[in-house]
Design a protein around this nucleic acid. Sequence first.
DNA 1: TCCTAAATAT
DNA 2: GATATTTAGG
Length: 297
Amino acid sequence: MGEEVNMSEYGGVDDDRVSDWELGLPSADDLTPLSHPLISPELASAFSISPEPRRSMTDVNRASRNTLSSIRGELSPSDGVAFKSFDEERGKDKDGMVVEGEESDPDVAGDGSGSRKVRRIDENCDEEMENGNDGGSARTQVKRARLVWTPQLHKRFVDVVAHLGIKSAVPKTIMQLMNVEGLTRENVASHLQKYRLYLKRMQGLSNEGPSSSDPLFSSTPVPQSLNEARGSGHMPMPMPIQMTHPPQMMHMAVMGMARGSYQGYDSSSYNMLQQRDWSGSKFGSVASYQHVTPNDK
DNA sequence: TCCTAAATAT
DNA sequence: GATATTTAGG
């Protein structure tokens, strides 16, 4: 769940008080995010309604999340899971570490029937080169950390692409349907580019055996959707995607991950779980961000 | 505007 | 070298 980095600053100061608080608090999963959209993203996209009202409550969100994270980080005596507070290496620009908060997710069985977990990307900006009061426009785009396409995220991506049809699967639409907070169109575009490449390869080598190049892609069943999904000239009626109705935001917040070691995923669990929802598996979080070097480009 | 391919960066 | 981001052309 929402691992937060800056909690390291408060590390272990108030464990006692925290445990008192947590007694009456609902679990993080039960909380409805403030960013709760009123209509389903499918519907929204069907009618060209912007799914994200662009609330200006981002600060509030962040604040409450921080609080939650802090609490979460300190509790766990009841679970067998050991939450370790993580200290991060900020000094080294090339170093990052994976912090996966394992979340007990009891409702995995139905795969989408129950309450979908809220998902979002928690970006973290290290040093923010804040605007030196330039022209005054709030244009200062904080450099996002490197997005890591976790199996969950990719699965969502594939689902959306599949149901859109390969034709109308364009970055913007995909991004909207995925409804992952913080996920940019460029993120999707980039991934889509790679995904298309992958599909092409697979198509060319349809009788290719085990060694499919990408562990991520090969793990996700590729839909036979080289066909168009939407009738031409029709209004984009949202299709009943596998994802359940309130597919709110993906909740995700994981930092770091050493470069180049992504392929270290256990391929066996891939095959086992390829049709299941990934939540609850060892992949506690949906996506992760890699720490970005303070280097400016 | 935005999609896609290519270049660049990590 | 793989992945993700950024740039450039349409």
